[in-house]
Amino acid sequence: MITTQQRLLETGLDIARRHGLRSLTVRGLALQAGVNPGSFVYHFGTRERFIEALIEHWYAPLLERLTLRARAGGSPQARLLSLLEQLLDNLLDHGSFIGQLFMDATAGEAGVLRFIATLGDRHIRLMLEAVADAQRAGQIQADEPIHVLMFIMAAAGLPALLHFGLAEPKCLPAEICDALDRLAADRDHVRRRLRWALAGVAYGAHPVCNDVP
């Protein structure tokens, strides 16, 4: 049986996916969840504490999956590929929520800004460590790990972020909108772009990118 706390969190996630956390009010959340505002105060206290709990409720399982990939065996390059695939899978599976989070941050939603500020010590650190391991093994180009990661994610992930609402479709040319709809968030195309990007950063490194099909 679902608890009141779980009902509030799941209802909050639904609101966030559709309208963003910036639109969430305690009264509106309680009404949609079918609970009285007093129950909300009992479980979470304030709107800010609820938003922090909601984001962690969503993020913790994603971080756990990434951590498992980061600790897996195989060559550093193969481990980096696996980690990037999981990160991009998370983006594709939760794109509407992630897109709204970016817009919440732009709107100055304090709880979202605090969450984003923690990411450098969380999954971003896992990604940078994986890049550095592959560099030490001579499997990708030697450069600042953050620069390499920026290149890979810009090639593989940025189109999907655009697709999920970081740009208004009507402000882009029609052919770009069509490409975003067809290609940007299609899993096969995302993985193809990822392999292109990894092949690019592996070019000229030693050994050559043998682990990336």
Score class of each variant (00 low, 15 high):
Ser82Cys: 10
Gly45Cys: 04
Met153Glu: 03
Ala174Thr: 13
Pro145Trp: 05
Glu56Tyr: 06
Leu128Ile: 03
Leu113Ile: 10
Cys209Glu: 08
His43Glu: 14
Ala107Leu: 06
His189Tyr: 13
Leu13Phe: 01
Val35Gln: 07
Ala185Val: 05
Ala185Asn: 04
Ala155Asp: 02
Ala53Gln: 12
Gln5Val: 14
Leu88Val: 05
Ala72Arg: 15
Ala155Gly: 12
Leu9Tyr: 01
Val35Arg: 09
Leu128Ala: 03
Leu24Trp: 09
Ile176Asp: 02
Phe151Met: 05
Glu109Ile: 15
Glu175Ile: 13
Gly138Cys: 11
Ser82Glu: 11
Leu13Pro: 03
His57Ala: 14
Asp186Met: 04
His19Trp: 12
Leu158Ala: 14
Val112Asn: 14
Leu113Val: 12
Asp14Cys: 08
Asn90Met: 09
Ala155Glu: 10
Asp89Tyr: 06
Cys171Leu: 14
Gly200Pro: 00
Val190Asn: 07
Leu24Asn: 11
Arg136Trp: 00
Phe115Glu: 10
Thr3Gly: 09
Thr11Lys: 02
Leu81Met: 04
Asp121Cys: 09
Asp186His: 13
Gln139His: 08
Gly204Ile: 01
Arg18Val: 05
Ala134Met: 06
Leu149Asp: 08
Arg187Ala: 09
Ile51Pro: 01
Ala179Lys: 10
Arg47His: 13
Gly34Cys: 08
Ala202Glu: 05
Ala174Asn: 11
Thr106Ser: 15
Glu56Met: 10
Arg182Asp: 12
His206Glu: 10
Arg182Thr: 07
Gln100Cys: 03
Leu87Met: 04
Glu10Gln: 15
Leu80Trp: 02
Leu54Asp: 04
Ala142Leu: 05
Gln5Ile: 13
